[in-house]
Design a protein around this nucleic acid. Sequence first.
DNA 1: AAGTGGTCTAGACCACTAA
DNA 2: TAGTGGTCTAGACCACTTT
Lengths: 256, 256
Amino acid sequence: MRRGMTKAQEIAADLREQIESGDLEGGAALPSEAEMMRAYGYSRETIRAGVRMLVDEGLVVTGQGQGKYVRQDFERVVWNWTTLESRSRHATAVEGKTAGDQWASAVSGDGKTPRQEISVSIVEPPEHVRESLGLPEGGLAVKRQRVRYVDSRPYALADSYFPPDLVTGTPLMEPRDVSAPGGVLASVGLIQVRYRDEITVRMPAHKEAELLALPAATPVAEHTRTGYDADGKALRCMVTILPGDRHKILYEVDSD
Amino acid sequence: MRRGMTKAQEIAADLREQIESGDLEGGAALPSEAEMMRAYGYSRETIRAGVRMLVDEGLVVTGQGQGKYVRQDFERVVWNWTTLESRSRHATAVEGKTAGDQWASAVSGDGKTPRQEISVSIVEPPEHVRESLGLPEGGLAVKRQRVRYVDSRPYALADSYFPPDLVTGTPLMEPRDVSAPGGVLASVGLIQVRYRDEITVRMPAHKEAELLALPAATPVAEHTRTGYDADGKALRCMVTILPGDRHKILYEVDSD
DNA sequence: AAGTGGTCTAGACCACTAA
DNA sequence: TAGTGGTCTAGACCACTTT
């Protein structure tokens, strides 16, 4: 036993060392619990407590009946938020693609098939969305809720909220894909000239983890984009939940 | 017992419901293990397994000898990456402050005292940094490593890497605060006209969690900014580790 | 059928905090 | 000192996957 460590910590430290040194590569199987019980002479629950520490760190995944493995993530999809839905005035779509397609084109490079499920409703938005949109207390917003899939695996949740007066009677009220040159805002005559993005990092809520089929110890980014027109009026607030294991967020800015 | 749930899941579900409904507010104490054992008639380890699920979700924190509490985070410090170290050409510092002070001024509003520990070394940078800087394989970089504190609590880790030829012999090689109008780059005559930010979300490495004194189930954002001059040459690569429980990342962009 | 991990128990002892 | 959570044990039974 190592000094100043519990038995479980000792097991965690040993395995962590092997993983971080590359001795155990991504996808490699860890010793079974029975083997470790023999090797260390500790009880089963103690072994499990040690391994659990690594699961909580995101280094190890387990599967019932299968074994324990060094975690190996998929390649991350890159979200370039600088070009996404941000060219509404110069309506020339980025690289010849419509803005609505951008999420799709970002992932469709290698024969992957993106898909999204859309539902539209009128709701009382979350507090911070209500404030961002400048709605009165108790005010309603049009919510376009999307679940985005790549190859049938869920990839992200995206909820857009609009002030009702701006979108009632437009195609945005229909639960269908809207892919127009310049983005969905331009498609209903709204011109976004500025946006404000807020990103926070947290563990997923229980329901989010279910919807996104997240492995243990997978945090998410909550990305909120609020778009404004030339008068400073908020046009849309879009809240995207991006699982950390399959996304990379990108900003490219000319600062001169 | 609820249908289709283990006993531990049942306990987790009950507590989660009380927390999410606001029945148990942030900072409120949960029942003790002894109480829950009586209330449910389950064994102690089962109770603990249930509570552990909520700890892993980031909803509950525990303290030995103290009890279990609904998690309550500090207020988040806002990092506006759009104005931070991004005005090197127009050397008028943002709002009259030097760029080096911006991290400090972001948190010093309410009598908080920021501080940072700096150390400088010459190292082989991590793979992705080396590529971003356009260094040859095995090439070296100057590393300015900073640990940032607010009121003696660690808040972030920030490692900046520079191509050696750009900074040798400059004040950037000294482990001291460099706060110059227009930022540290401008202080040594480098003009950044473009930057590229990459953000990924993950659980902290064991050492990061120690350095930052992170509570359980606290993910981090890894923010990498690479700055370029007018010729497209990479000037700096800055890797910042931002704990999710104390930061909010902000971008404000004019898109017209 | 054999091997894996997942759940649960009853009990012991330890470490820490607060009254 | 009493009450809290943290660690550990030996054993049982269950659920799942692979052979």
